[in-house]
Nucleic acid binder design. Structure first.
Lengths: 251, 251
DNA sequence: CGGGGGTTTGAGTCCGTTCAAAATACGTGG
DNA sequence: CCACGTATTTTGAACGGACTCAAACCCCCG
């Protein structure tokens, strides 16, 4: 079952899945009309308010969650109480695949950063789709394989890289999800994250993050104003992230 | 194509896949006799010597590699030349899934740590199996989803955890792959890794690793002698890895 | 017996954490 | 709309862990 804290909405979603704006961009697009109809019948509309938990670490998976609107943060807790945020989910993405297919408890907790409108697809319905549409299964294989989340985390949390570099990597990774172009070469970010959560993504503390932010500001690389970040020249970001000797390792 | 550095072996593998000892433990087990036969025909036997590269970061994927014997290390290089090892592969496991299904270049380099005997399954053959055996596809979905490699890396490379704790986490993660029981509660590891490579797995330098090793030795937690590690009491490892306040995060 | 890579040890420095306090932003109720 | 209380963010100073650079040591192999 989805978390009891959820505010399940009984009213239907504004559109059928066929019309859903993100349908054409997500895994579901490979379903034909009959598949969509089946999917449409079995899904459950849910609303979550900012700060609420969508599913919890160690809970059993009961299906997957397609995000129609809003932002979600995936985080893990280690035994020392350190929070590790390793993935920001935006609208159009679906969460919960991994634990569903692995048939294991959720490895992370999903936190609604903003109010969220979510389509929940229950285990049974999803299994039926998988059985009926082999190329849908195949598409999911691709989705899972393409998930760069864990790989990105390697860069973001490398203890060998200084915090300011890790912060720049984070901006580059969030570029697609949270920024718009500001011609000629700039970017404007609107991050749905608090400082503490940004810090949790790059494996540091908010105090240290604060200092890194100040440094980027004085260098003119990125200007943070609350949750708005303006980057005058995104090429600078790439330069800084990639500068350094690419000497091969000596085994 | 597999790396040109490979020493492709023209002689057949010692057994047919049906008899392969690891067949019963791997994804391939869900294939029926006809599937196995097809698989058996299309695979390519390959031998690699220690230190050779099986595939390289940025190369295109051409199939997957089933490890019949030997050890493989998956590593990434960042722009600063830091080596990041994030996965140790042992016999019975298959590598290369991710880039194959994602249809993307390899995200990592696979290094043979010891001499390796490997079954290469070319793209075309694998695709045929996938088309013909939906439950094989489904099984692979599970395999991909269960791959804890990237998730493990989170623990191993958390900059907030001190190096000695990260080292203990590594031992725990490698327990299944590289250790045997030493009753009543001990473990004996035989690590196929050099110090530098261990360091690369926990995101530190070999000098610092050396000091962490010494600390574990004086505490009697784990005694390193070359590549052999003896752990008198594995419960100690768990205690140390999990001790610490499990206080929930304040958002 | 003499390399040479790998590993360990040492000393100094820097970066990031910690603890504490000030400043700012935010939400709520008057 | 403003005042107030709370939460978040920033700043400061001190401490500590890990990196860096070097040098010594060790072990395996030729």
């Amino acid at each position: 079952m989805p978390s009891l804290m959820s505010t399940k909405s009984d009213r239907p979603l504004p559109q059928s899945c066929v019309d859903c704006w993100m349908h054409s961009r997500s895994e579901w697009r490979v379903l034909d009309r009959a598949g969509i109809t089946a999917h449409n019948r079995s899904r459950v509309a849910m609303d979550f308010q900012a700060g609420h938990i969508i599913f919890k670490q160690t809970e059993e998976s009961s299906g997957v969650y397609c995000v129609e609107s809003g932002h979600i943060l995936l985080r893990q807790l280690d035994a020392f109480g350190n929070e590790t945020a390793f993935r920001l989910i935006v609208q159009g993405e679906t969460v919960g695949w991994r634990s569903f297919f692995a048939d294991e408890p959720h490895a992370a907790t999903a936190l609604a950063l903003t109010s969220c409108r979510i389509c929940f697809i229950p285990r049974k319905a999803l299994n039926e789709l998988l059985d009926k549409y082999p190329h849908f299964t195949r598409q999911l294989l691709k989705t899972l394989a393409r998930d760069r989340g864990p790989a990105e985390a390697l860069l973001l949390r490398s203890p060998l890289l200084p915090v300011n570099i890790r912060l720049i990597h984070l901006l580059l990774i969030l570029r697609d999800r949270c920024s718009v172009l500001a011609p000629p070469d700039g970017l404007i970010f609107d991050l749905p994250l608090k400082r503490k959560q940004i810090a949790a993504m790059i494996g540091t503390r908010s105090e240290t993050l604060s200092r890194a932010i100040r440094e980027l500001k004085v260098n003119g690389v990125a200007i943070f104003q609350g949750r708005r970040v303006s980057v005058p020249d995104q090429r600078r970001l790439l330069e800084i992230a990639h500068q350094g000797t690419t000497s091969p390792p000596a085994n």
